[in-house]
């Protein structure tokens, strides 16, 4: 684990650079500990696969002081099993890219569906769009490159694949993921006080409908 400055108002913590549920659980444990410590001058933080970026106000705290305070925190060993909530997401596997994914992976459509569904995925991070979860680990047989040309518009609730990841579009947006299905569940609800269904560290299980 390394701490380094990221410009003049952020601190970047990097772990070993790989996608791994246990490593990612550490990232979220550190983020929670830093949030709970309520260090004066810390504005927000962004967890990702194996990195955590802490943004601070340099008028209120210096990088070195922040780094010391973070290193002095007692971070509990995270448990991947009990962290976060588990949510079932109903999916109609009718996505426009199912044929392309089948062709690229050499799997039949029923094989694709059974490999993708009924297994736990960790919400590694939320990014790209507000509320868009990056989910994994995805079975290797399903790894598939992004579309050559991104779509102008992907509907809200579309379930897609890209590389080693699967994800859900929170609302209609342009995007390059291979769309394999559609959920009726709202992962983003504009009307709600808390508009986001998922949080980093949650577990998602897709259920075919």
């Amino acid at each position: 684990m390394t701490l380094q400055p990221f410009g003049d108002r952020a601190l970047l913590i990097n772990w070993e650079q790989r996608i791994d549920p246990e490593l990612n659980a550490k990232v979220h444990a550190w983020q929670q500990a830093i949030e709970q410590a309520a260090i004066k001058g810390v504005e927000y933080s962004i967890p990702a696969y194996c990195s955590l970026t802490v943004v601070f106000n340099p008028m209120q705290i210096a990088f070195d002081t922040l780094a010391e305070k973070i290193q002095a925190l007692k971070i509990p060993e995270p448990s991947t099993r009990h962290a976060g909530r588990t949510l079932e997401i109903p999916v109609d596997y009718n996505g426009a890219d199912l044929p392309e994914v089948a062709q690229r992976t050499g799997l039949s459509e029923p094989e694709l569906i059974s490999l993708h569904s009924n297994r736990p995925y960790r919400v590694y991070l939320i990014g790209f769009l507000p509320g868009f979860p990056y989910l994994g680990p995805l079975p290797e047989a399903l790894h598939c490159p992004r579309k050559q040309t991104p779509r102008q518009s992907v509907p809200a609730g579309a379930v897609g694949l890209a590389g080693a990841q699967t994800g859900i579009y929170p609302f209609e947006a342009p995007g390059g993921w291979q769309i394999i299905g559609q959920t009726s569940l709202k992962v983003f609800d504009a009307e709600s006080e808390d508009p986001f269904l998922l949080r980093p560290g949650d577990t998602v299980i897709f259920k075919p409908v």
């Binding site: 410009g7 962004i46 990014g127």
Partner: peptide, 29 residues
Amino acid sequence: LSSAVLPGTVQVPPSGQPIILMADAQTTG
């Protein structure tokens, strides 16, 4: 591997043409 980006981050896609992220940028890249 997707990691945080901030307003003011200069990222370089494979085209080699840098992009300076600004106020409405996405949060990871």
